[in-house]
């Protein structure tokens, strides 16, 4: 655990509860934004990848294991939103987002790069490509779509998602990271 924990005898239950609530509500908000397409929020028919933004913000100051778990949880919930009827296991967003969470935490950002939203936007750009590539690989293995179509789609989706998500990254990153930083300092 990289997060400094408060001594056991001084656990502030009210504060922990509030922190948990904000974490859960912010995650649900990011999922709830998925079907929204506002003018300016759309590029070639796709919107920003909100769960990706949440997972990157979550993982930046946490251990790779915590990042992985956060990514898998968000991925499963996005699966449920996309295709609740079949409940099929593959292709799953959990693969890409879990990988994103783990990789982001592995970056050990506070040691390598200055923490500002420009470097976060760069990380989001790279992670959006990782996320879409994980999905394209799953489609390729499954074989339910023609291989050439999958990889032409991948180019369009990865680039669109990367550009839009990195532009919108500060909206999720700034408030959430500020809140979590205050939690660890307090």
């Amino acid at each position: 655990m990289r997060l400094p924990l408060a001594p056991k005898n001084s656990i502030n239950w009210g504060r922990n509860l509030l922190n948990g609530l904000i974490t859960v509500v912010s995650a649900l908000l990011c999922l709830g934004l998925l079907p929204v397409r506002l003018p300016g929020m759309e590029l070639v028919g796709i919107g920003p990848d909100w769960p990706l933004l949440w997972v990157v913000t979550w993982s930046l100051r946490r251990t790779p294991l915590q990042g992985l778990v956060g990514g898998v949880v968000m991925g499963w919930l996005q699966d449920a939103l996309t295709n609740p009827a079949t409940g099929g296991l593959w292709p799953s967003h959990a693969v890409g987002l879990g990988l994103v969470g783990w990789l982001t935490a592995r970056l050990e950002k506070d040691r390598l790069i200055q923490e500002d939203f420009i470097s976060v936007a760069l990380i989001v750009f790279a992670m959006a490509v990782v996320n879409e590539t994980a999905m394209a690989l799953q489609w390729s293995v499954l074989g339910s779509r023609p291989l050439t179509a999958v990889w032409t789609d991948h180019q369009r989706l990865a680039l669109g998602s990367a550009v839009l998500s990195s532009l919108w990254a500060p909206i999720v990153y700034l408030p959430l990271s500020q809140w979590w930083k205050r939690q660890t300092l307090a």
């Binding site: 998925l34 009827a85 999905m135």
Partner: peptide, 25 residues
């Protein structure tokens, strides 16, 4: 229509009518 696909790899729409309005799968 109240929403679009919640994932880039699918082409979906979300409509504001459901079982309560008699819509079936």
């Amino acid at each position: 229509v109240i929403g679009r696909s919640p994932s880039h790899w699918w082409q979906q729409l979300l409509l504001a009518a459901g079982r309560a309005q008699g819509v079936g799968e």
